[in-house]
Design a protein around this nucleic acid. Structure first.
Lengths: 171, 171
DNA sequence: TATTGTTATACTCTATAACTATA
DNA sequence: TATAGTTATAGAGTATAACAATA
């Protein structure tokens, strides 16, 4: 149980005899230079790491982050069609077809033609889909997100989430 | 000039007559459900948006985020070889070849065989590469990162960067 | 034998056009 | 004609194996 209110990035300035500003890189280590201050770079690196950990934590139920997001959205919005679900997740309709084929093939959800508009496919989670989602959610909460809170603290996680959401929405 | 110290995500609870908890979604809007609390999802969405804006801001010098990161690293570490630069950026050596071909083809950097180890290609920015990098850096600072600071504030940007770096490093 | 840069290759994501069946 | 789901396809990004030159 590490401190759950860990400070985020204490630079720990002041050592014995730092020559100037940047820490000397002894011909073996590369200097990150201004890369360290680039938000996009940090975002990408963190995102890759988080997805990697997600994949590992949710491995028992064999769901990718994208698949998990689809199941979550189907659960919160039963009876919607493919276009609505896909566009909400930023997935293009053509690319959503194969994704759904996989999920439906595993019996996690079903497509049914809408009686109102026979062009649309109404999407619903199956019981197995709901059970799988529940198992995945527990894994995400107790392993994935829990480890993250352990690393940066609960308040920081909330602040981080808020900033990311704001950027995605308003930037 | 919007407030540069903008609050990040004030939920603004308490309206006139909210039925229960979640805001009612009137058959036209989808409920994000627990997706809103998933850090990986927020990370991905924010990263996509930030890269999109980066691409737009740096369009005058025609550099992708990945290419910009290579030039930055070459500038901070002149005389390194391909393997060192690539692995530092998390790029696999085979995939770095075409990237370098493009940059070298535009005259932004050069490969020269090392006299010590004739297997290695020493990488160096050209004058044109340094000039292009300088132009790109100015665009990133004055447009891209500046807009981000305008959106979330300078302190929040610093905190965000620190958390993302910590996650990439230690998660 | 091990390493550097390279080629070839494959698999995933993403993006666009166009088809079909419905409306 | 317009829309929903679909197919085909092309382009990035990413991953592994293997080869030639060099150590």
């Amino acid at each position: 149980m590490t401190s759950s209110k860990a400070a985020v990035g204490k630079p720990l300035r002041a050592r014995k005899e730092a020559p100037a500003a940047e820490p000397t890189h002894e011909a073996g280590e590369l200097a990150m230079g201004e890369l360290a201050g680039l938000l996009g770079y940090a975002l990408k690196r963190a995102q890759l790491r988080v997805f990697e950990d997600f994949l590992h934590c949710v491995a028992p139920v064999q769901l990718t982050p994208a698949q998990f997001s689809v199941l979550l959205l189907l659960d919160a919005n039963p009876g919607r069609n493919q276009t609505e679900i896909a566009t909400t997740l930023g997935i293009l309709r053509p690319n959503f077809v194969a994704m759904l084929d996989a999920l439906e093939g595993r019996g996690l959800c079903v497509r049914t033609r809408s009686p109102n508009d026979r062009r649309s496919h109404i999407l619903m989670l199956t019981d197995k889909g709901r059970a799988t989602l529940a198992r995945a959610k527990k894994l995400v909460e107790t392993q994935h997100e829990a480890r993250l809170v352990e690393l940066i603290g609960d308040d920081n996680r909330t602040a981080l989430l808020a900033m990311l959401a704001k950027i995605a929405r308003e930037f």
